[in-house]
Simulated scan of single mutants.
Amino acid sequence: MVKVKTIERPNPQDRTAEKKFYVQAVSKGTTDLERLAYLVSHQSTVREADCYAVLLSLLHNIMDELKQGRIVKLDKLGSFQIGVRSEGVDTQQEVSSFLVKKSHVNFRPDTRMREMLDTMKFSLEA
């Protein structure tokens, strides 16, 4: 179960408006590649070091494919794709790659993960 907590935030569009209360997910920690390798190795006949090496290789290859502008689809997990934030200009002639201010990775979960999100249970942290 995912714990949530109450936070108070101002309206970013109107800083003079009254603040409102929202719910925010609370993290229980982090799971890294080493931990994932450990978990996978204990659920299969593959050794932990081999799992870790495969996961590192997967990460390296995902990053290489994203750098080349490809969408990386991992069946049953989802798809990764590069997205950008840019400045707006008045005419099409002014558009250039220099308008890109920041890049990020978009993740779109696959059906199985979306279903997990749809059935997620939450509890309010005291």
Rank of each mutant, 00 (worst) to 15 (best):
M1T: 09
M1K: 09
K3A: 01
K3D: 08
V4W: 03
K5M: 08
T6H: 05
I7S: 15
E8V: 15
E8I: 15
R9H: 03
R9P: 08
R9V: 02
P10S: 11
P10Q: 07
P10W: 06
P12E: 03
P12T: 07
D14Y: 03
R15Y: 11
R15A: 09
T16C: 15
T16I: 09
T16D: 15
A17H: 01
A17E: 00
E18M: 10
K19F: 04
K20Q: 12
K20T: 06
F21C: 03
Y22N: 03
A25W: 02
A25R: 03
A25T: 05
V26C: 07
S27L: 11
K28S: 13
G29E: 10
T31V: 13
T31S: 02
D32T: 04
L33F: 06
L33I: 02
L33D: 11
R35H: 10
L36A: 05
A37I: 06
Y38I: 04
Y38E: 15
Y38F: 13
Y38Q: 14
L39K: 00
L39A: 06
V40H: 00
S41P: 15
S41G: 15
Q43V: 01
Q43W: 07
T45K: 15
T45W: 12
R47E: 09
R47T: 05
R47P: 10
A49I: 13
D50G: 09
C51T: 02
C51A: 02
Y52H: 14
V54N: 11
V54F: 05
V54E: 05
L56C: 03
L58S: 05
L59G: 12
L59A: 14
L59K: 15
L59M: 11
H60I: 04
I62S: 10
I62K: 13
I62L: 11
D64E: 14
D64T: 00
K67S: 01
Q68N: 04
I71F: 12
V72G: 06
K73W: 06
K73L: 07
L74T: 08
G78S: 04
S79N: 02
S79Q: 00
S79R: 06
Q81L: 08
Q81M: 08
G83C: 05
V84N: 14
R85P: 04
S86R: 10
E87W: 12
G88C: 13
V89S: 07
D90G: 04
D90S: 08
T91V: 01
Q92Y: 06
Q93W: 09
E94M: 12
E94G: 09
V95E: 00
V95C: 07
S96P: 00
L99V: 06
L99P: 08
K101S: 08
K101R: 15
K101I: 08
K102F: 03
S103F: 02
N106D: 10
N106R: 08
F107L: 14
R108V: 07
D110G: 06
T111P: 08
T111Y: 04
R112C: 10
R112H: 11
M113V: 11
E115N: 13
E115V: 12
M116T: 14
M116L: 15
M116G: 09
L117I: 09
K121S: 10
K121E: 13
F122L: 07
S123K: 01
S123A: 01
L124R: 11
E125P: 00
E125F: 03
A126S: 03
